[in-house]
């Protein structure tokens, strides 16, 4: 599903070069739930933005669902992002002026779905996160946990092949965080491929596999044998 090979990202200014990712490689299979951990500045977010096609990389290769994204135009990357990827952000990133249904509608609009198709998908995704009754509410009228559920519903509405989550419980209290992580696990059980960035070891432990990043490099992989992991995800 997601295959990065010897991928590097260097931020350059006139006086300094910062290596956010160095020769970074990762292979995430379809249906896998991978946690990416590491201290602040280790390159977790850079990985997420490159994986989400929000940013270009300096060198290496990146295959997303069989498509080589190197050299793609901004427009091509936007389309691929819209079709294949769902984002769950730490800060939810809901648009405050739009109600819940209209927030979920945003990626569907760019997908050029018909009005009926968009309505169906909004209804289904809201049912999936248990917020059908809140379709006309505005983000400010919801709790943090509910807002994150809306963000998940928005990410799911387009039936993405890959869910990228950035500290999905970082802004939530313990009880709300538990609800959200249970929802993510449920999505995984239903077959979603999920890559979650977190610095919370307890949260990372809920994933099938943990990839640890330090200074833009993978330093430690889950010792769990690949075969056992594959058996668990039914490959």
């Amino acid at each position: 599903m997601l295959n990065m090979s010897r991928l590097s990202k260097i931020y350059r200014t006139q006086v300094i070069e910062t290596h956010a990712l160095r020769e970074f490689s990762i292979h995430v299979r379809e249906g896998e739930f991978v946690a990416l951990t590491g201290p602040s500045g280790s390159g977790k977010t850079t990985f997420l933005t490159i994986a989400g096609l929000l940013e270009e990389f300096s060198s290496g290769d990146y295959m997303l669902d069989g498509t080589n994204v190197r050299g793609m135009t901004d427009s091509q990357r936007s389309r691929l992002r819209n079709q294949k990827i769902g984002f769950i952000f730490q800060a939810f990133n809901l648009i405050p002026d739009l109600n819940v249904a209209n927030n979920i509608d945003v990626p569907l609009r760019y997908r050029r779905f018909s009005a009926a198709e968009r309505r169906r998908r909004i209804t289904e995704s809201l049912e999936r996160v248990g917020l059908s009754a809140r379709a006309r509410h505005y983000p400010a009228e919801l709790s943090g946990g509910q807002q994150q559920r809306v963000a998940i519903a928005r990410a799911l509405a387009g039936s993405p092949r890959l869910l990228l989550a950035d500290e999905p419980t970082g802004n939530l209290d313990t009880q709300m965080a538990r609800g959200v992580i249970e929802l993510i696990e449920e999505l995984h059980r239903d077959g979603a491929t999920i890559v979650m960035v977190t610095h919370d070891p307890a949260l990372a432990a809920r994933a099938q596999r943990e990839v640890h990043l330090v200074d833009g490099q993978v330093v430690d992989l889950d010792p769990q044998p690949l075969a056992a992991m594959e058996a668990r995800v039914g490959l």
Partner: peptide, 16 residues
């Protein structure tokens, strides 16, 4: 800008 960033993340092209 923040909203534009979110829309771009959700699939909006520059032309959108």
């Amino acid at each position: 800008s923040a909203e534009v960033g979110v829309r771009r993340a959700l699939g909006a092209r520059r032309i959108d």
